[in-house]
Amino acid sequence: MIKVDGLTKRYDRTVAVNNISFEVEKGQIVGFLGPNGAGKTTTMRILTCFMPPTDGTASIAGFDVMKSPLEVKRRIGYLPENPPVYPEMEVHEYLSFVGRLKGIPSAELPQRVKDVSERCAVADVSKKLISKLSKGYRQRVGLAQAIIHNPDVLILDEPTAGLDPKQIHETRDLIRSLAGVHTIILSTHILPEVEQTCDHVVIISKGLIVAKDSVQNLTSRLRGQEAVLVEVAGASTDDVRRRLEQVAGVSRVLHKDTRNGAHVFEVESLPGENVRASLARAVVEAGWNLNELHAAALSLEDVFLELTAAEKAQGGQQ
């Protein structure tokens, strides 16, 4: 449904997106994950024909964004980072305007406006000025605007940014409910969002794709590379850390917490190594108390940090 090949976008000096390629199948929800400034918005703006790429191609439903922008635009719904609403308009006026802009026939327009208003839970404010709406409502009006013409592809740029937890929850549910009918690509810098909403993930960092996979595969990809939670009492943080780092097979030691004089560490090991026994021995032999030790699956967050950190290291070497 979406095909991106060798896409590059250069601003004056910065390379915002550097030769990225990925594909999205029909009906998938793909999370486009990356820290701020990674190039998410830039990629989405190219996909929506807002701006042309410097190099490479992108196509939606088989239509190239450069060669047939009108065909592409007919098939996409786009929610930019800030909902593109006119404050001086009432909600239903605004949705009718967008509907007309997207080419919905006048006869069907009132029904469509009603449908999406209900779908996005903005029906109760439909006669209100958009300037009077809260951020959460505005965001939902933005979503309603994006789906009003029933597009094949939905492109949502940080759809939950700036919302409170309840609104975030509602928005995620709404997005999930849109899956299946639409192919969705949503960007975010928040990991749980991807885990909760998406079935695939493309991780981007500094304009480069560092991983793309299903959310499941990605979390289990580093399963061999296990994380272990260790709680140790009876020594200073630094001593424990140094000792744990010396254990063979350990790749990284993270201090998580200190409570009641006990330090909690997360220890990551190299793939294929089982370090639990050696860790226990090391702590006990040092004469400290081992309060707790258990395996923890790496969360997507860890994977994300891992990948973007590896990327940084590579960048540093060049």
């Binding site: 786009y78 930019p80 802009l101």
Partner: peptide, 8 residues
């Protein structure tokens, strides 16, 4: 302007 530019 993002709405106008990305509409058909």
């Amino acid at each position: 302007i993002e709405l106008l530019f990305t509409s058909p």
